[in-house]
Each structure stands twice: as structure tokens, then as C-alpha cells.
Design a protein around this nucleic acid. Structure first.
Lengths: 343, 343
DNA sequence: CATGAAAATTGGAACGTTTCAACATAGCGA
DNA sequence: TCGCTATGTTGAAACGTTCCAATTTTCATG
């Protein structure tokens, strides 16, 4: 079955291609009668004009950028997308969002889609599991396709907008130590995120810079998806005696922290009276919780905005620009899920 | 400044267009030396191949659909998007998401973008404020561009996947009446959503089918964005005496309900002891709240999946299909934010 | 009815790639 | 040295639109 083209419509309607084109584009040079007739034929043949061919002739008319995030339902990422959207809109760009849902193949597929569709550039939250599934990023470089990464990826020179996870976690842990906690645990995130590893490093470093000693069992990998972290958290606490509980937990992110809070409620462990909890990201919903979460605030909106700014600068530059790397500051926000240890 | 084309690269590199094309596409018919050289020239000229031209020659290679939601940070919509994504992926389609953020102009712009980029079809959560800002939908129809709406839009024949808001709200209100409530109020949503109007209607009808009488002041429009609803809710309760409080509130959606809960906490009004609260949508985060929200569960995932199914059927059909309209059932989920009125 | 202006229509070039048959070259064995 | 392959490279046609100068048709007017 062949694609229906403007030519088929023209032939069937007994007019020229030019006229059909004029109808499609709503030009007022067409007699009402002719227009009607052509529209009918279009409908009859179920003719769908090929956007691609229209664009080709017209040159660059649309300005658009794409974002590939990891998890469409995690507000951290959608807020970044909204920040990017704000800046992009102010420059006349449209923004389309796409989510890899932690699947490498999807990430690859979407970078391809973007360049194939002439989306002018991309902001990518890259999956960095293991070593080198970054073939597709090299391909983008070959095509001189502008992109900005939201996490550093080893082995590739590229624009990056990131946050200083190590510094952020260190600050949180040091605070907990200051207010008297010694039995502190880090619930770590999924292995395919560079955030996970950086946060673990920060946790370690905080200890090595304190009088306390770090032990391997202070790092517990429980994931960040709700069901998973909820289950793991339940199991973690159930499998040990009350006196072996940590007095403070630093969570990988707020989503995980909410799962942990849910588990603790289930177990009748009070926050912050029995255990202090620190989140990470400062997502919107964590603020609404009746015990508002102490957390590390990542400037999500700002991350998106900055990434869009760099991206658009690169898109609009006629010459290749040297890669930029921006590290944004986090804030440590003390709310009500942490409190000094009673001694 | 002219666009750099493959021809420029070829000329500068002293080879033919065909060879440059072969390099770009990683064909192994090119001598390593030649490849290097061409790549260098590409970089030097900052040559970005035009995806559009590549697609034109190749015909239909990509399968992709787009979704336009209203609010990227509201989980109700992202969950729908994930449902659509699941089905679409199973059929080999990519999915790009876009958000109108309640702006008509954005909605229009994105429908245009999708058809211009040959995204094969769209799922649209339409803004239906007032009467007829639906020019762009008619344009899509003219282009025989396949789309599915997530709310009914008056005046246009189209595929729709929706939920029965009226029935759903009636069920909730009747339940509240059954368990003894008489002073019930509906906090209504923003005017540009058809959900708002349908839910108001449902509320009214529940009363007209009960012994109780409906009064206009039972409908209070407080919006659904957090800051706005939070502020309005605070003001609502502050501006009247305790004995005039409703004993139950039916909220427009869960996001609004969470804002109301926050306001009530602020005012030391207990839920459900002083006031029962019913949400709507059953978003993920409302479940985590320590007083899990009684709510009307919209089958978000299913909505997305069904919409994608209809959309793809239309995309793949060579002939125009008659519009389909699907209404999905909601569940009324009783959790802990409602309780019988003590008498 | 002839005329000229206005309105409507036509058709070929152009957009920037890919494709592929044809051609050129290099390397090798006899 | 001469074929013969295998390997590289070329260049014109094709993809499906839009554009626009040229042409035809319509219509009002005297």
C-alpha cells in the first residue's frame, strides 16, 4: 500500500498540486467551491500531508528542544523539565519531554528520534550504569548535535549541569553528627545513577572528616522506587533489634524517604522522636507531609533553566562551542523530620 | 548566514555528497582515511545534518506518538502518559510528552509541532475554557491527523477516552450522606477544565436525588494549584465560625485535597474527626499521607493505555475510522480521611 | 460584446538528504 | 604486462511538499 500524496489528491480532484497545497495551508486564493471539493477528496483518500516534506522546503521554522529524563513520575525530574521549559519558551522554543524509565535502549532511541525529527537539541539525564553504553552520545557528537547532560558521564566531553552531591551529603551528615547522632545509616539508591555513587562517597567522606568511624554496613542499598524501598525498609527494621536501629537515616532522595516514612509508620517508629530522617531533592510533596521533611534542596528549576540556557546557546551558535560544566549549589533545609539526639 | 549542507562539506573535503552521506551513516564502504578527513571537515564547518531531509527520502521509518497534558507536575497526568507509553511501546511506538500548562496557545503550538514533525498522532488533554478555542483541533481534522481527546469537547466529533465524573462524584456524595453528613461542601476546580463542571453537576445531582436540599453556597471555587487552593481553603475556614463548618468536603482532585489538608492542619482542624475529606484521582502521593485519603480512583494507567490503543488503531488504518468514545469506570476508595458523623 | 483588472489556477524548480548503478582505482596472481 | 576482484567513489534521480512567475478564467464595466 502506497502513501497517499498531494499528487494523488490533485489528480483525483482534477486540480493541480499547487491548488491542493493552497487549500491545505488555508490560503484565500482558492475559490470556495474548489476548496470544498478538494477537502472532500482529501477526506475520501484519508490524505495526511507529510510534515517532513513541508519543512524541507520551508527551511527552519520551528524552534524546539527535547528533554530525556529518567522517570516521568518523579517530580524532581518534571520540575527540572519545567525550568527548562520556562527558559526555552522565553526564547521561543517548544519543549518536548521524554522518559527513558531507566532503560538504556529507550535513551538511545529517543536521542535518535530527536535528531531525526530536527528537534534542535537535547537535555539528557543519562543512565550511567557500568561503563560504556554511551555509543549514542558519541553519535550525537559526530552529528554536531547540541546536548547538555544532567550528570557527568565519564569518557565524554560534553556540556554538563550538575549538583555537588558529595558536598551536599557531607553537610547533612555533619549536621546530624553535630546534633549528637552517631548511629547514622545511608539508604542508597539504584546503581545506574551517578547520584547514588556520589552520595555514598559524600557519606563516607563526612565520616572520615569526623571523629566517628565509618563502617560498611552503614550503607544499605534499598532502591528508590516506592514499593521496592518500602519493602526493603520494612525488612531492614524488622530484621534487627530496636537497640540496633540507627538514630538517623540519610535517604537517597525524597521519594525513597517517603517510602521509608511509610514503613516507619507501619512499624510504629516515630519520626523524628525515634529516628531522624533526611531526604534529598526537596520535591514538592515531601513538604506537604505532616512531618515536613528535612532535606537537601536541589535547585531543580534552576538546573533546568541553566541547562536550557547552555543548550540554546549551543544551538544558535554557528560555530562549535567548547563544553561548559556548571555545578549548582544545594541548600540543606532543616524541617521537622530531624531532631537532636536526647542524651 | 546560510545553512551548512552536505554539499558544502563535500566540496570542502573534496569528495562527493554520496561519500559524506556514507560517513554520516557509518557505512563501511569508506576508506578509513577518507572517513577521518570528512569527519574533520564536518566538525570544522559545524555541519548538522538535516533530519527532515533524511526522513523524506527514506519514507516512514519511525513510529511515534505525542501526548499533550495540562500539567507536567501533576501525577494524574504523568501516570496517564506512562500508561500510554506502555501500550505504545508494545506496538513499537515512541512517545513524547508535552504540557500545555493550562495555556491555550501552548496547546495549539504543540498540536502544530506534532503534525509538522510527523509525529504520527496525538493524545490531548484539551483545555475547554469558554466556547471555541478549538480551531487547532479542526485543523487537525482537516489534515486527517489522528488524535484522541481525554475530555469531551463540545462541537467536535473525535475519539474520546474519559471518565464518568458525574457518576463518580454522585457516588461519593451519596456515601457521605449515608454515613450521616448533611453539611457537605464541594471545593471546585479551575474553570478551564471540563472535569470541574462535570463534578459540580454530579454534586448537584446527588443532592437532588436525596432528601437533602442543594444550596449554591455548597460549591466553592478554590482552584487546584497548591498555593492557590491552600490560600483559599485557609480563608474559607477563617472567615466563618466553627459551627458553620461543613462536616465533609468533596475536593476537586487529590492535589487540591492535599492543599486543603495542609490548611486544616495549620488551623488545627482534625481529619477525619472534625471534617471528612474526599479527594479525586487517587494520585500516588495521596496514599502515602499518614491519613490516607478517601478518594475517587480514576484508572489513570488504563486511560492512557486505552487512548494509545485507539490512537494507534487510527494511525495504522488506511481509511478514516469513525470516532470512538470510551467512558471508563472509577472506583470509590474509602480510606481514613472520612468517617461517619457522630450524632 | 469587448476590454481590462482581479481572481483563481497551474506547473516546474527548489529544499537537503539517500540511494544505487556506474565508474575508478588498487592489489594481486599469472 | 594484463586481466580480474575487491574496494572506494561518484553523480543523478527521488522523496513530497511549497513557492511563485506565468497563465487562464471570471467578472464588472462601458
Amino acid at each position: 500500500m502506497q502513501r497517499v500524496t498531494i499528487e494523488d489528491v490533485a489528480r483525483r480532484a482534477g486540480v493541480s498540486k499547487g491548488t491542493v497545497s493552497a487549500v491545505i495551508n488555508g490560503r484565500n486564493t482558492v475559490r470556495a467551491e474548489t476548496r470544498e471539493h478538494v477537502l472532500n477528496v482529501m477526506k475520501e483518500l484519508n490524505f495526511r500531508p507529510r510534515g517532513v516534506a513541508r519543512n524541507l522546503k520551508n527551511g527552519e521554522l520551528d524552534k524546539s528542544i527535547g528533554i530525556i529524563i529518567k522517570d516521568l513520575s518523579y517530580p524532581f525530574y518534571t520540575t527540572i523539565a519545567l525550568g527548562a521549559r520556562e527558559y526555552a519558551n522565553s526564547k521561543g522554543y517548544s519543549v518536548v519531554v521524554t522518559s527513558s524509565e531507566n532503560d538504556h535502549e529507550c535513551e538511545r532511541k529517543y536521542t535518535h528520534l530527536f535528531s531525526a525529527k530536527d528537534i534542535k537539541g537535547a537535555i539528557i539525564a543519562p543512565l550511567v550504569e557500568g561503563t560504556a553504553e554511551i555509543e549514542h552520545l558519541f553519535k550525537l557528537k559526530m552529528l554536531n548535535y547540541p546536548f547538555v547532560l544532567l550528570e557527568d558521564v565519564k569518557g565524554i566531553q560534553a556540556n554538563v549541569v550538575a549538583i555537588d552531591n558529595i558536598k551536599a551529603i557531607k553537610k547533612a551528615v555533619k549536621y546530624l553528627i553535630e546534633i549528637g547522632h552517631t548511629k547514622i545509616v545511608h539508604f542508597a539508591g539504584p546503581p545506574q545513577s551517578s547520584h547514588t555513587h556520589e552520595r555514598i562517597d559524600g557519606f563516607r567522606q563526612a565520616f572520615s572528616e569526623s571523629p566517628l568511624v565509618f563502617r560498611e554496613d552503614m550503607i544499605v542499598s534499598i532502591g528508590s522506587r516506592h514499593e521496592e524501598s518500602y519493602g526493603n525498609a520494612l525488612q531492614y527494621f524488622r530484621s534487627r533489634n530496636r537497640e540496633d536501629y540507627p538514630t538517623a537515616v540519610v535517604c537517597f532522595n525524597d521519594q525513597q524517604a517517603l517510602a521509608v516514612l511509610t514503613a516507619l509508620r507501619e512499624l510504629n517508629i516515630r519520626v523524628p522522636d525515634d529516628i531522624s530522617i533526611v531526604g534529598n531533592d526537596d520535591i514538592y510533596y515531601a513538604r506537604l507531609y505532616p512531618v515536613p521533611l528535612t532535606t537537601i534542596r536541589a535547585p531543580q528549576y534552576e538546573i533546568g533553566r541553566k541547562a536550557a540556557e547552555i543548550l540554546i546557546r549551543n544551538i544558535e551558535s554557528p560555530t562549535a562551542l567548547p563544553p561548559e560544566k556548571v555545578v549548582l549549589e544545594t541548600d540543606f533545609i532543616i524541617r521537622e523530620s530531624t531532631k537532636p539526639l536526647r542524651t
